[in-house]
Amino acid sequence: MPKKEQVSSLQIAFMIMLFEIGSTPLFLLGGKAKQDSWLAMCTGSAAGFILLLLLMWIQHRSLNTDLIGMLKFHFGKFAGSFIGGVYVLYFAYQSMRNVRDLGELTAITMLPRTPMFITMLVFVLLALYAIWKGAEVVFRLPEVLLPVMIFFYIVLVALLGIMGSIDFNRLAPVMDGGLMPIVKAALPDIVSFPFGQMIVFLMLWSLWEKPGVPVKYTVNAYLLISLFLIFMNALNVAVLGPTIAGISQLPFLKTVRTLSNLKFVERLDILVTIQLFLGLLIKMMLFYFCSVKAIAELTGKPAKWWVFPVGAVIYGASFLERDYTQHIAVGLGPSLKLDPLFQVAIPLLLAISILVRSGFRRSA
């Protein structure tokens, strides 16, 4: 019998942080709230935290079982397997979106003459290799990459402060339009992306070296990364202003380009691009890994049987959208509207089933 793969509390915390950063800096989330977009991020992260508590409770009541096992146990083998199969497609779809983001970002910033199908293939093959090696390799990557990313962000924010590019007066007036624009910008969009995507950890917490959930590490990682994302959102508005930040294709990249008059260092946008690559690669890899893990459990076949087929589907599907404009329109439109079904509705049904079953046990 093969040894069960296990990961540590710290590895899970680092993965949560890098996963949540992911492709988030590509966009000004909550842009509809204008200068209050950072408050929309606060609202979204608070709602996401309530969802995280629900997910951790579900995992705590389902020790050593991942999402697929929970679905089959609570909804029956047939219905549970069907919903599990839909989750396989959902995880693969989310991975595909990040593959396309990587390809488009590379074409925009670094390799405009290199065909996108080549760069996207390279990224998929990198993820494929790590997943083939197993969970322990996948979870080791954030331990190396997260400190590098944090260092780069600290350097860039420090330079923006030194050069006087940051003007927090651009965040005023606060709540000029009242509370409703903030709530509408946050719910459900910011909950769906990025905070609701914590649903993937119902596939991953069962890999922890102890039963249950590393609650302290998970909560601390979530709170830290929420504060970071709120600050970065406010920073983009403070440098660019709400109008320019809201319409920018890559707001943080545009923010860093305001440092172009520095004489002692050039091409700081390369640092931003590297940070985005790292976040997108980890996010794409984790969704890919969860899709493989889910289909392996549904079929009873080893995960390695599915690494190549799932990778091929993800790579092929990344060409379905005609161009980047359509890709963003789908991702921030219909895709976000469907996310609550997978991130909120089904976990709520699982929680209700757990409560009902525990009630029956008490009365028996």
Rank of each mutant, 00 (worst) to 15 (best):
Q249P: 02
V213I: 06
P347N: 10
L278Y: 00
F117M: 13
F27H: 03
Y324C: 00
A345I: 15
M70H: 00
L229V: 02
P181Q: 04
E321C: 03
M15A: 06
A127M: 10
L235D: 03
I270P: 08
P147G: 09
I58N: 06
P2A: 12
L348G: 03
I21P: 00
P25T: 00
A33W: 15
S353V: 02
A135L: 03
V137F: 04
M284A: 11
L145F: 10
F14E: 08
R100T: 07
V292Y: 11
L89T: 11
Q11C: 13
L52K: 01
V7C: 06
E104A: 10
R140N: 09
G177S: 13
F287Y: 13
G31P: 14
A135S: 01
L276Y: 01
D339E: 09
A107P: 00
P214N: 01
I244T: 12
E266F: 05
Q94E: 14
H74R: 14
T299F: 05
Q326V: 13
L126G: 13
L67W: 08
S192D: 07
E143I: 12
L286H: 01
N98H: 13
S206E: 09
L229K: 08
P340R: 15
T106L: 11
A46L: 15
L159D: 00
M180N: 12
P302G: 07
G196S: 10
D269G: 05
I50V: 14
T106E: 11
T24P: 00
A40D: 11
G48I: 04
S37I: 04
L28K: 12
G30V: 07
F123K: 02
F277R: 05
Q343M: 02
Y217W: 11
Q94S: 10
I282V: 14
R322E: 02
I182A: 06
F75Y: 08
V174Y: 12
M284I: 00
M15H: 00
A238P: 08
K34L: 14
Q94P: 05
V307P: 14
R100W: 06
Q11K: 09
S358Q: 15
F228Y: 04
A46R: 06
Q326F: 07
Y90M: 00
M116Q: 07
Y315A: 10
K4E: 04
F360K: 13
I346L: 12
F228V: 12
S95R: 10
W208D: 01
F289K: 05
L28Q: 11
V213H: 03
M285W: 02
P188W: 07
I16L: 11
P242M: 08
S226I: 03
M96T: 14
I247L: 06
P2L: 14
G31F: 04
I352C: 05
G22A: 13
P194K: 06
T65F: 07
M284D: 05
D101A: 13
A296P: 10
P194M: 08
